[in-house]
Nucleic acid binder design. Structure first.
Lengths: 210, 210
DNA sequence: GGCGTTGTTGTGCAAGTGTATAAATAGTCT
DNA sequence: AGACTATTTATACACTTGCACAACAACGCC
């Protein structure tokens, strides 16, 4: 009578399946935390069965690592994209950079949850710690480059140490406001964080209000 | 022959045992992450057997909650302690506050790991989100109060909105530098972060260098 | 010293974990 | 159409997890 009735399925391309699994992993972690992100949960969300995960990844640990790498890649990519306005003045580009970093989609509770969950393991997992450090230094170097342009346009000649300190401070301002926005977004009116950030950073650089 | 040989034990006071269990929980989470912080791991570290946990806490979830509350309590307590120098000038008290927040024991990788691990669940756990928000607002109010004193000593009359913006920005600077210090402490020389923080915050407030 | 209270241990259990592996089927090639 | 291959499913397994519960023993009290 009733045939074994096995589940229907389609064969997706390898690239597509890996991406789907990674996305499902990030969704699971964001929604339920690392502890409840089991292979079955992830597979269910990706619309496949658990066994398939081991066909694309050596183990769950590797899937988590790749998911974290993908997350960081998207974040820094978006952040840097705002710096590409070639024709604007350095000061305007800096302002655009700050604004981009302090609004959606970078200010986002889900992304923050993911970042915090993964970075919390940096103490235990040296691989993660190194990945973070590289992303951080890359970001800070971008900041330092724009700052150098801004100050040059003002005919100021900062030395290396001064430049480094500015970059560290500006990075802190952006990170700190990013956290506040992600964790308590509805406490701020739209654009308020960006305005605060721009003012604070221009004060740090000693720029006169426009 | 060999008697059942049960394990020897001592009866500690209730308060002591609860504290030990909470500390063991924080240690376990910091070292191996939330996923591997099992009741057995925690109990082992506390020097008791797993069953005892349920004698002091309704469930594992409650133990985690109390551990997080204890962590936050200790952090804000230490942070605020630096504000208690009654006799110093407002500006000196502000500087001391910043310095305290940007050195050990507040700058500490273990504490950061714990903070990140727990806060990563704020998106999923409304209880955690509320606990964080309260701690954050308390901290920001402290900042706002000192800022008001500092500006008053300079004979400036900021309105409420201006004060709020300063507090948000200063909070961000401290948080951002805190993260940088925790995650990459060895990239900074001793006292460097505090110096950067003080300069940035004095710039934000428009204070002339001393 | 003996006794009761209760903090503490040890064992058991059902549910869930990651992984291994065999069986089935979708898509491709001829 | 039919065979081949590799993606996908399904089942099994050893182990871990949080929790329940009964037995035990440390400590205070008489």
């Amino acid at each position: 009578m009733n045939a074994p009735s096995r589940r229907k399925f389609r064969r997706e391309g390898e690239e597509r399946r890996r991406q789907d699994l990674i996305d499902a992993t990030l969704d699971s972690v964001a929604e339920h935390g690392l502890e409840r992100a089991t292979v079955r949960t992830i597979a269910l969300r990706a619309g496949v069965t658990a066994g398939l995960i081991r066909h694309y990844f050596p183990g769950k640990e590797d899937l988590l690592r790749e998911a974290y790498a993908a997350l960081m890649g998207r974040m820094t990519e978006q952040a840097k994209a705002a710096l590409l306005m070639e024709d604007a003045s350095p000061r305007r580009r800096l302002a655009a950079f700050i604004t981009a970093n302090l609004n959606a989609p970078i200010i986002d509770q889900r992304v923050f949850s993911l970042w915090a969950t993964f970075i919390g393991r940096a103490g235990a997992d040296p691989t993660l710690a190194r990945a973070h450090r590289e992303g951080y230094l890359g970001f800070r170097n971008e900041v330092e480059a724009v700052v150098a342009e801004v100050l040059a346009a003002e005919r100021r000649k900062p030395d290396a140490s001064e430049l480094r300190h500015h970059a560290i401070a500006i990075n802190a301002i952006i990170d700190g406001l990013w956290i506040e926005g992600c964790l308590a977004g509805e406490m701020f009116s739209p654009g308020e964080l960006a305005a605060i950030g721009i003012k604070a950073i221009e004060a740090e650089l000693g720029l006169a209000p426009e």
